[in-house]
């Protein structure tokens, strides 16, 4: 079954009260992993990512009736998940600081986390991404890891395609620069 067919099925099930919960389960099972990893890359901590993932799907459950199918289902989900992450940073006392300080804290969170692999190049690569400004980090993750089109990313981040291309270009340059500077 293609992605579009699954999305169409989920959409029709969510809109009928008798199949709403079945549609919700299908939606969560289809998108839980990509959405979890999108959140995890942004907030680093597994516990925080788990909480935000749940909040994201609870919002989906609550506002399922307001989704009119005018954008792709996964762009709608990514948009909700991204907004939840940004809200998490703004509302949390721990994270509510300037972006430079927050980036350093995220790097520290990754270094202190037991769950990360010991592959040095992967850790350096994530450090480089975590040092990017927020918008560039979002664009880079959605484009590089999730392989979303610029058109989809523009719907998620509410930004123009040209701006996103520029952001992605600068992000790549900065990551390359960081890895060169921190090469062993």
């Amino acid at each position: 079954m293609s992605e579009a067919t699954v999305d169409a099925d989920i959409f029709s099930m969510l809109n009928a009260p008798e199949t709403r919960e079945k549609g919700f389960l299908l939606l969560v099972n289809t998108y839980k992993e990509p959405i979890y990893w999108h959140i995890r890359r942004l907030v680093v901590s597994h516990d925080d990512a788990e909480d935000i993932l749940q909040e994201t799907f609870i919002k989906v459950y609550r506002f399922a009736g307001s989704y009119k199918g005018d954008s792709r289902l996964y762009t709608w989900l990514y948009r909700i998940a991204t907004n939840e992450c940004l809200q998490f940073f703004r509302q949390s006392k721990k994270w509510n600081s300037n972006s430079g300080r927050r980036n350093e804290m995220l790097v520290g969170e990754m270094a202190g986390h037991d769950g990360h692999s010991g592959d040095t190049i992967l850790v350096k690569f994530q450090e480089a991404i975590l040092h990017l400004p927020e918008k560039q980090r979002l664009v880079f993750n959605l484009r590089y890891y999730d392989e979303l089109s610029y058109e989809d990313i523009s719907q998620i981040l509410n930004s123009s395609v040209n701006t996103l291309k520029t952001n992605y270009h600068y992000a790549r340059e900065r990551i390359e620069q960081y890895l060169k500077e921190h090469a062993e």
């Binding site: 839980k32 692999s117 992967l122 850790v123």
Partner: peptide
């Protein structure tokens, strides 16, 4: 990614 998740984390999440 240099991250991992606990075993069986994704099962039963829905």
């Amino acid at each position: 990614l240099p991250y991992s998740v606990p075993d069986g984390f994704f099962s039963g999440i829905a």
